[in-house]
Design a protein around this nucleic acid. Structure first.
Lengths: 222, 222
DNA sequence: AGGCAAATGCCACTGAGTGGCATAGTGAGT
DNA sequence: ACTCACTATGCCACTCAGTGGCATTTGCCT
């Protein structure tokens, strides 16, 4: 399912073959979209480059946008997986629990080109509206799944208590902030750099509620 | 520009005509999408119903998804407008400032069918992935514009300080939470009900950072 | 009245995404 | 080794969103 998972040479031949074409499609797609442009690259171009029929492409990916964000989506799958297995310290805030799971998920992304491909994908998301929209929608779905997992495993109060949902949305907000500064870093930052940015963003959450707006040309708030 | 603004009979005839077709397209679109289904309604159907060419549709709206969320987008335009004119009390948290602007913007939506059309649009966003994705992307763009306005008008600290961005994302999170419970309310709730839900969501923000996850079948956190 | 600019309609076209059906390669049972 | 079932794939035709170009109308201004 996830292309960054270990190839697991134990897998049946058929599965390995399918994974190979999946991987080839992602690689070629990110390369072509980045070099030649997203709109300028047709699916026929992509399929020709990988020597695969368009029908096969759509059996592996839901849309043209989907393939560009596959590496990011793999990380979110790991995040949900982590949520399923994590153990809450007693009295531990949910936000910390979720932050830990996200950091572990990022740490699990040890694939070779993962960081580079995520950066390429997110840059596309920033420039191409349809890709950005797809990414946001995927994040939203994942958030809902995460909430469902947490509610199933733990007692988070009434279902109409908005706090649990808000917590996860804050996590996502921090994620996006961290991701954006990470993708614009010079050089070739890796997963560890992303984790560092994430920690910074998490640290900024509590203080943001008290941020004040000083009129321009006046001393900033303490 | 916005279809919910007062008709302003003083407008040049040409503008009034354009507004009429815009309004007719939105009305017909929401009706058709809701009754017959989004995918099942082609743009040709819609244009035939309004007796307008497809070319004209695309001069008024950017996409099929766009027309469904026009009423919501009008509110966000009012929000940005409000951000431009608001005055910050000294030492007032940015989050409160933004919350007030959002409530004022909702209060400004006095058009007849506004609440109903927003509900129809958001229900489509919840059911149809492409509509949901478009809505999220629009929200994201609006958030960035709001941040730019605030940074231009007020001193919010360094540009790489993430707090200002996180504040706005929290506002959006509260908005979505409120909107969702509002759209699923029984009866025909109006803008005032939405404002009430918004206030509830705003109130839930501070407490969510301390929400704890109790193991199932154990007493909930205090 | 007459001319300008904007809005519209019509037409042809590209490209994403889907359904149906025939085929080939794979895994399992004998 | 042989066969049977399964699944992925390729190919073909199709729908529909969205775009560009050009001729035509329509409100607007002098």
């Amino acid at each position: 399912m996830t292309i960054t998972a270990v190839p697991a040479d134990e897998l049946p031949l058929r599965e390995r073959k399918k994974l190979r074409t999946r991987r080839a499609l992602v690689d070629a797609a990110l390369e072509l979209f980045t070099e030649r442009g997203f709109e300028e690259t047709t699916l026929d171009d992509l399929c020709a480059a990988v020597e695969v029929s368009k029908r096969t492409f759509f059996r592996n990916f839901g849309s043209k946008e989907d393939v560009a964000l596959t590496p990011s989506q793999d990380m979110w799958a790991a995040f949900l997986d982590e949520l399923e297995r994590c153990e809450p310290g007693s009295g531990r805030p949910v936000i910390e629990l979720a932050q830990d799971c996200l950091l572990v998920a990022v740490g699990r992304m040890t694939g070779d080109g993962w960081a580079r491909q995520v950066r390429l994908g997110e840059r596309l998301a920033a420039r191409i509206p349809s890709v950005g929209a797809y990414g946001l929608h995927f994040c939203d779905r994942t958030t809902r799944e995460a909430l469902a997992i947490l509610r199933r495993r733990f007692d988070l109060g009434d279902a109409d208590d908005l706090r649990a949902r808000l917590v996860l949305d804050m996590l996502i907000a921090a994620w996006h902030a961290a991701l954006e500064s990470w993708t614009s870093m010079p050089g070739e930052p890796g997963a560890a750099d992303l984790a560092a940015r994430l920690r910074e963003a998490f640290a900024a959450i509590p203080g943001c509620l008290t941020l004040t707006a000083a009129p321009r040309d006046a001393p900033a708030s303490p």
